[in-house]
Design a protein around this nucleic acid. Structure first.
Lengths: 134, 134
DNA sequence: TCTGAAACTGCCAGGAG
DNA sequence: CTCCTGGCAGTTTCAGA
């Protein structure tokens, strides 16, 4: 969207509207801008999640796991879960074989004691970010 | 990013670069553009996931559940999970009390038999979309 | 290559603290 | 009185043909 279009929608002239956006960017409220792509069109047919349990809850072990998956491009998200030594990952794979390979790599990774894959059949809702002023 | 900046990065002049982008948009490879915002800055302090099990695997029940959470603004994602009658949700909440209320609403919703909340302690990786040509 | 439009920069005015 | 915020005008750059 152009700035003048945005200004028109919020009922403001263009320059102060642009200044507001700049302020939001510098304040970190707006972290950036992205193009939203179609995964299947780029050859990423499978999206799945993985619940990973580690053998230890030591901070060094947790950090090591996070560093490992940070280097895997197929891992898109890594969330530490309350309750001790568990992570929820979102991964993408080119096909089912690729997905199996990724799961195997996770299972055999250091300090990993348990891997539960959550394969998505269909996604009925997929919105980014948060509600617009709820 | 401006088109000329994009063209410079990919080593192309502006007009053909723009034509390529337009083709990707029309082909559906690029679904749209959006700003990435900081949830905490807008008052959404808590992000959590929920694994929801339903009492039935009947399609009508699944659709009814999807329709229900589609109307909840706090539910940002809803993925049906292979294995039968399970869903993985991503939710945001204003605070812990709000989170508890959302969990309670889920637990007491029609056809819901089980709710396991996955509260995120920290997120070490959070990338949108898919790898850029992996 | 060329034209219209949009992004951006000063400067000024008005209102709230 | 000062600061914040919005509007106006001019310049530069970009989008689109």
């Amino acid at each position: 969207m152009t700035n003048v279009e945005l200004a028109r929608r919020v009922g403001l002239s263009a320059p102060p509207c642009l200044r507001r956006v700049r302020r939001l960017e510098e304040a970190g409220v707006i972290r950036g801008y992205h193009a939203e792509v179609e995964p299947a069109a780029l050859g990423w047919e499978v999206t799945f999640f993985a619940l990973v349990g580690l053998e230890s809850q030591k901070e060094s072990v947790l950090r090591a796991f996070e560093a490992m998956v940070a280097a895997w491009p197929e891992v898109r998200e890594c969330h530490m879960i309350r309750g001790g030594g568990d992570f929820l990952l979102r991964l993408v794979a080119r096909d089912t074989a690729h997905e199996n390979a990724l799961t195997a790599r996770l299972t055999s990774a250091p300090s990993v004691s348990r891997v539960q894959t959550l394969q998505t059949i269909r996604t009925s809702k997929d919105l980014a970010g948060v509600p617009a002023e709820g």
